[in-house]
Design a protein around this nucleic acid. Structure first.
Lengths: 149, 149
DNA sequence: TTGCTCCTCACGTCACGTGAGGTGGC
DNA sequence: TTGCTCCTCACGTCACGTGAGGTGGC
């Protein structure tokens, strides 16, 4: 597949550093089918990635870290990123308007699911934080009582 | 160790269910030194836990799940729960006021560290949520454009 | 040509999951 | 006594970490 515009390519080490993971993780995700290996790569040849790949990986890692999802759960939500990437990359290409509409309408519920998960976690975290603050308050209180002569 | 008040005791399965984990996880934490096995238990005898143990475990699991901490990192923060439990359990016991003050002043910075971690995660989650909402907005916009005749 | 990064096995590790076979308390 | 839950190995799994030995591009 040849791009009309000459796009900057990255090697696995640079991608890993930008995303904040190791090359091993990227290879593992590819091995498990999460990243879609380029079929063009010759056996033993170096892997090459685009800016879109970096964005996609960053999103995946964020979902993994912030929501604690397994790779299997990630695979489901990752479809959203794939479709969004398809939207972004092929927006000006040969896709028809009806095809674009189909992609948009497929992506919306996936992003909504992500948002639901994030908001649920935000609520439990807020609750936890409130409890910690209450604990701190009562500890300070006790310290004041014990410090009094 | 005999308690002055007859305290309700729980077996590992009941504790696991209340905390939302499996008995295996509890045994593993004990094996790794996170839970402090009762030295009184005979080899092969059943493990028994108190309400204080359940509370402690719940806090540990919450830190693990919400912050994604490793068991080694948990061990550090767990000292806070241990000390707080000591405070709660032995508050009316033989401890002197100076000893109580020492415990309180040891616990405060540990809870503060927990709060710092929780607040940091709250911020990144809020940022993520905002990005997701922005994405949804632009997707809805695109859908409107494409749906227009 | 020299480094550097990359490649593919392949074994190790962390945090448990999952039986296998056996013992203990209401 | 009968179930049920518990016990201790011990091997399996998931998500990578970590070399071992070798090849590829500026």
């Amino acid at each position: 597949v040849t791009a009309s515009v000459e796009e900057r390519q990255y090697r696995i080490g640079e991608v890993a550093e930008r995303v904040g993971i190791t090359p091993r993780t990227i290879r593992y995700y590819e091995e498990r089918g999460l990243l879609g290996a380029e079929s063009t790569r010759p056996k033993g040849g170096h892997r090459l990635y685009t800016d879109a790949d970096v964005t996609r990986l960053t999103e995946l890692i964020r979902l993994r870290d912030l929501l604690g999802l397994s790779l299997e759960e990630l695979t489901g939500l990752a479809e959203a990123e794939e479709a969004r990437a398809a939207l972004r990359d092929r927006w000006d290409d040969t896709e028809s308007d009806s095809e674009r509409l189909r992609i948009v309408e497929a992506v919306i519920p996936l992003i909504e699911r992500q948002l639901t998960l994030v908001e649920a976690r935000q609520r439990t975290l807020a609750e936890f934080g409130a409890e910690l603050k209450a604990k701190l308050e009562s500890l300070h209180e006790r310290r004041r009582e014990l410090s009094r002569p």
